[in-house]
Design a protein around this nucleic acid. Structure first.
Lengths: 144, 144
DNA sequence: TTATGTGCAAACAGTTTGCACATAA
DNA sequence: TTATGTGCAAACTGTTTGCACATAA
């Protein structure tokens, strides 16, 4: 357990009285890294390697628990959701529609928008969702 | 039929060989106005007043047809979708989480972002989704 | 007249839930 | 020891589909 995010997460959950079962630890491990912002199915498949009895329901329940604790960011895309447990605060995403990879662009590009919207429209902004879709440089170069 | 958007829409569909049934016209009527960015249920309920036999399936099929023609913008929120048939191109939204109203903020605030992202990350941006969530001025003033 | 659209009911996919059993603390 | 978590299967929700009948053009 060298990942500092994983450490913060397990400490918090322990403090909050949650049990750290092997299934949960495996799920947390994947979410703390959040490589590629996995779907529930992908998380389940990966946990399954180590713990073959783990059910989808447990993955869903663990994610629900983490959402309640504000420790995972859910990115819903139509009927599929992907999760980021390494940076659970809202932040913009840059998504390749060819290879499905997700990049987190520099947030400074978007820094003043909340304030601008409050000033111009009087809204108290509480959250946001910003996704840009396109073709990543790698996919552009392999013209398939 | 005084709404220019509705006129453009019906003309295009006629030209493309689609039949303009009474059900479709009623749905188009609602979507062309898109007051409040209605859900499928809301569209169905409103069409139902005039045409009580209209099924949900027809509403879904009509929306699917309009999506294929690029004439409606779908805004998925978790398990619910809302539709904008008056301005089907991607554009930012400002959403009140109290009264569910949706405002279209000035797009100029976001004008350069696509270009900035292309320059900085090499992505060819094809589309985007920008939603800001908050409390609208009206809801702020009625502290319930 | 006939290709297209409608409406019903069944199917579908992702998610949630109830409950008996298992287990972390 | 016992309150909490797990795993299964059933339920649920929004959406899609197949098919017989209806109808716009």
């Amino acid at each position: 357990m060298s990942d500092p995010r994983l450490l913060t997460l397990t400490e918090k959950l322990k403090r909050r009285g949650y049990r750290l079962t092997p299934q949960r630890l495996a799920i947390l491990n994947i979410l703390a890294a959040s490589e590629g912002h996995p779907t529930v199915e992908q998380i389940h498949a990966r946990v399954h390697v180590e713990f073959p009895t783990t059910s989808l329901a447990t993955v869903y329940k663990t994610i629900a628990m983490l959402k309640a604790e504000g420790e995972v960011l859910e990115l819903g895309f139509g009927n599929i959701s992907r999760y980021d447990g390494s940076k659970p605060q809202p932040h913009p995403h840059l998504i390749c529609t060819r290879c499905q990879s997700i990049v987190d662009p520099d947030e400074h590009l978007f820094a003043d928008l909340s304030k601008d919207l409050t000033k111009k429209y009087g809204y108290q902004i509480t959250s946001y969702r910003i996704d840009y879709f396109g073709i990543c440089p790698e996919c552009q170069h392999q013209n398939v």
